[in-house]
Design a protein around this nucleic acid. Structure first.
Lengths: 193, 193
DNA sequence: TATATTCCTTAACATATGTTAATGTCCTGG
DNA sequence: CCAGGACATTAACATATGTTAAGGAATATA
């Protein structure tokens, strides 16, 4: 478990005191996932936060057997069923490792308890949500205002290398199109260039 | 300015102390908007939070002259350019009153300063972001997994009465379709029933 | 009251994307 | 080494939705 790495990720979002860090570390549980293993399944109740240290995780909705990829998590981000934790309801989303992955897991309720003792941890939580919101809004603007071709190119910039590591139908789902359509777009791009 | 109403909205999200409330009130500036007036224009720099007390406000992106409505704000919510405030960048979004509206406005930076003195205000901010995130996620799931007809019906449930108050092309834009298509959907719904 | 403006509806047409299906390649496990 | 499965590509076809255009109702303005 790369403590130094985790510390650097967190304190880049909001500075944390040595005391808070000491208490926080106590909550950490390392976790390994094989390719295609689930971190969280739709409908399950959860009480854990995750920080990805290696690999890739996707989040997706499932409606009538169809999966809709919402986003991909890369190392240094938090593949965590936030809404389920915050509202204490079963998760509407599934989280699945697309590559062999390593994470640290910690209890959300215990983390929350630490807020009382360490104000900086509450500020950290606020900082995480703020970052999330900013990213999300940027992403939304792209998805709504651009066509699929443009969004495909933005995907390649946003997640460099990822394209080579996962099947294209996951990317298509992320873009809101069929794999066939993505294939057409790719063919078009090659030809145009 | 309906202080009691504002207090009830805020303290429903997170309890605030009388001292914090006293300091917070000092920041409030009432504001009136006519129909079609702008609260925030795309590209402008901002330093204000808003709480809507009466009327309706829309947020939208603008790309190459096309407007894409992101959502509508109803009384008791915060038509605030969050990303612009948090990242201190020009707003990518515009906020416009669709009906004569009343708001209270307060300085984001002064609000933030109060966090030091009143921890409950930082918790309030966290609570607001949490609520926002939960709503947003639910909305996203709908938009991605449902067809436009279903989303139109969800719109009518989510914003009762609103349909009668604003032009249909704003609803169409919110649904991600053309006004013509919305018209077809409406015709179909009448016929089916 | 008459006229202009805004907005909704409908139709005809164009187009992009989904669907189904066939083919080929690569990779894996027996 | 071979057979099967997973995945990507391509084509033919179906379909939903956008586009353009016209007409009409409602509302606002002179």
């Amino acid at each position: 478990m790369k403590k130094a790495y985790i510390f650097s990720v967190l304190s880049a979002i909001h500075p944390i005191t040595v005391e808070a860090w000491a208490d926080l570390q106590e909550l950490f549980v390392p976790q390994q996932l094989n390719r295609n293993d689930y971190l969280v399944r739709e409908g399950s109740r959860v009480n854990s936060c995750y920080l990805l240290t290696e690999g890739v995780v996707r989040v997706f909705y499932n409606k009538e057997g169809n999966e809709y990829n919402k986003t991909f998590f890369m190392p240094g981000t938090f593949p965590t069923p936030l809404t389920a934790l915050l509202s204490d309801t079963p998760s509407s989303l599934s989280f699945q490792a697309l590559l062999p992955s390593q994470l640290i897991k910690f209890s959300y309720s215990e983390f929350r308890v630490l807020f009382e003792k360490h104000r900086c941890l509450e500020s950290l939580m606020l900082g995480i949500l703020e970052q999330l919101w900013i990213k999300k809004e940027r992403h939304d603007i792209h998805m709504v205002t651009n066509d699929a071709t443009t969004n495909y190119m933005i995907f390649r910039q946003t997640f460099p290398e990822l394209e080579k590591l996962i099947p294209q139908y996951h990317i298509a789902s992320y873009l809101g199109i069929t794999p066939i359509q993505l294939s057409r777009i790719r063919a078009q791009l090659v030809q145009t260039r």
